[in-house]
Design a protein around this nucleic acid. Structure first.
Lengths: 120, 120
DNA sequence: CTGGTCACTTCTCAAAAGTAAGTCGCTTTG
DNA sequence: CAAAGCGACTTACTTTTGAGAAGTGACCAG
């Protein structure tokens, strides 16, 4: 378990290169423009296209369509077509996405303690 | 503690609007291009400009300079000038930044279980 | 005095995101 | 039955952001 690499890095470094790389890949997902707001919108009950648009304030139609497609491809959102008249389309978070969001909860606490109340 | 707002949202929604907003502000910081890699570089022992450049693979000089400045302004990085000859400049993570990074650790685990091993 | 390092800054150009409008199938309104 | 509207997008165009190369200035080694 203890490789020679670990012995070389400073003892106060909390992450080795591989661990760090994994974190970056997760940040890559949630940090891509609008995916944070979209996933959170899903967690807050959004299901249809326009519900996401309403819960992710400021997003444009093209971006929402694009990100939903990408999140679908990544397995974080599932797209369901309901063949009613008119046809309805439902976007739901997968368990993976919900787990990811739950991991982000501690950030709210940090944010509250560290960030200035509101200044924009 | 329980406001009337909380009673109105669906029981499966894990976050209310304010909570959600705080998370988004934290994501905004770590999701801004290169700040993730830079903070992680700092956590891994980087101190000088070129050390960050080496530990954040692919970053350009202008972006590194810009992000270091922004992180400094946000209180996540501290810039120290050591008046030796030649002058040395040291960038260290503040306790706030280290705490933030520690909150991101669980993402590595999620990443490992969810993301495909390596495909880029 | 030529060349090299460190910590940047300035430039140019391509990629990404924003804005506005249009499309397709279907439904409601007059 | 024509006109207008809705939901879920797509297309075309403009603006913003970021990447890449190169330059700057202070210092030092040969």
């Amino acid at each position: 378990m203890t490789s020679s690499r670990e012995a070389l890095r400073p003892p106060d470094a909390p992450v080795d290169e591989e661990h760090c790389h994994r974190i970056l890949r997760a940040i890559d997902i949630i940090g891509t423009r609008w995916t944070g707001p979209i996933l959170l919108a899903g967690a807050r009950g959004a299901r249809r296209f326009k519900e996401y648009r309403a819960l992710a304030p400021g997003i444009s139609d093209p971006q929402l369509a694009l990100r939903l497609k990408q999140l679908q491809a990544r397995g974080l959102i599932e797209r369901t077509v309901i063949p009613s008249t008119p046809v309805q389309i439902k976007y739901t978070l997968t368990p993976d996405a919900e787990e990811l969001i739950s991991l982000l909860q501690p950030l709210a606490h940090w944010s509250e303690r560290h960030l200035p109340p509101e200044d924009s």
